[in-house]
Design a binder for these strands. Structure first.
Lengths: 234, 234
DNA sequence: TCGATAGCGAGAGCGGTGCTCTCTGTTTTC
DNA sequence: GAAAACAGAGAGCACCGCTCTCGCTATCGA
């Protein structure tokens, strides 16, 4: 943790530089064009030298994955806490807007996180699970807080019986996260989660087409309203 | 259209072979590993020879894109027409299940269509727009038929006023496609569309994590029920 | 203090990629 | 039957990921 030897400090600095340059390259040229050789060039070093710091291209990808997840998580968290704790719908909207804002500002990095998996690359779960689950944890946190506060709209969803295997999954999630929210609302939360990222992905990945939707801010805000209601928030 | 000269027939056959081998390679090794040289090897020809038929890697990607869009479109259409015309909710469910079934069977090709855009590659709109819009056209067709049949649940969505710029977008879509469905329901349809693909993409791209949801069929069916209600279908 | 060790960067090299160019042979066209 | 169009082969360029070896140097232990 504390930089003991100067060599260790230099090494940490070099790794940080590699991540910085890799991120820069990701932003400018996209994920598939991410090249260790180019990073080496920018670093002013021969290509084989970077292998002293990064085992291979996949590990650099993992570092950039964690880096991006953390930045997204930080911005989402900051957006959420900027809204009063008891305004659950407002917190949800702030979260959703933060996700979209980051995605539109960082399309290449968003693609890395939520787009097609890079072929042949399997993200190591032990390093990416924790930063990669921050947003969904934030969503469930908001929903759970809303439920605990008695602010959940009691829609007809409680009446719909859930199949047993799905109930078991949801039960496991509830107990692992210590949630009070019932299964029906949690299942809705999962749908809201996927819908949120589905809308953002369609926009970032260009699925809307060039000129079908000009009023994309308004479209997203409209979707947010519907999703808030769907989640049972106020 | 009709094969005139034998040379033209041979050429068409070679292009078909290239597409077939490319698709095979896509399935087996993923989009980023798609290599013209490998296609040439499989074709039993030197690498430069395939450039007689395909301008570059991007054009091969476009051919495979259209190929995949068409297969998905065919399967979705077949699933839709297998349900009675007046069972609008059933048709929607059939469409949604067909999308998921194809996506899970062809993850690499689904990724090509709905995942991160391949960096540096811009799909030529004049060749991909028509096959790429078949699913959303099918969705709007179902919703419109349901509305015309008076089977739309009159939810509170009609009451929510839409911002003017968004209304203009929706109006343009309605007039272009000759839809009778009102703007509010059309906006919901757009959300249902993105939500559908959001759920499928999360599953195909592994966003659910390895063991969070074991009952994925049931989760999807549950989401479908909610989305049907959201769209106003019965 | 000094020798052993471990880390570092350079360089060459291997097999792969997309793509271009030239050359030869064949097929179609006039 | 000559001219033009087309097809494939082969060499080559610049790039990629990655490995290996070779010196140099900073660090560490006796």
């Amino acid at each position: 943790m504390n930089p003991q030897t100067p060599r260790e400090r230099a090494r940490a600095q070099t790794i940080a530089d590699i991540i910085r340059l890799g991120r820069q390259q990701l932003v400018n040229h996209g994920a598939a064009a991410l090249s260790l050789r180019a990073v080496a060039r920018d670093l002013g070093v021969v290509s084989s030298a970077v292998y002293r710091y990064v085992a291979n291209r996949d590990e650099l990808l993992t570092l950039l994955l964690v880096d991006a997840y953390d930045e997204l998580g930080d911005e989402v968290d900051a957006a959420v806490v900027s809204v009063p704790e008891d305004d659950h719908a407002g917190r949800f909207a702030a979260l959703a807007r933060a996700v979209r804002r980051w995605a539109l500002r960082e399309p290449a990095r968003y693609s890395l996180l939520f787009g097609s998996p890079v072929p042949g690359y399997q993200a190591p779960a032990e390093r990416t699970t924790e930063p990669g689950t921050r947003v969904i944890y934030a969503i469930t946190g908001i929903l759970d807080a809303s439920y605990r506060a008695g602010a959940m709209a009691a829609g007809p969803e409680a009446a719909v019986p859930l199949p047993s295997a799905l109930s078991a999954d949801l039960e496991a999630i509830r107990s692992e996260l210590g949630l009070a929210i019932p299964n029906g609302l949690l299942a809705r939360g999962a749908l809201v989660w996927t819908s949120l990222f589905g809308a953002v992905s369609f926009e970032v990945f260009g699925q809307y087409g060039a000129d079908t939707f000009a009023a994309r801010d308004e479209l997203y805000e409209h979707h947010l309203q519907v999703l808030q209601a769907l989640a049972g928030l106020v």
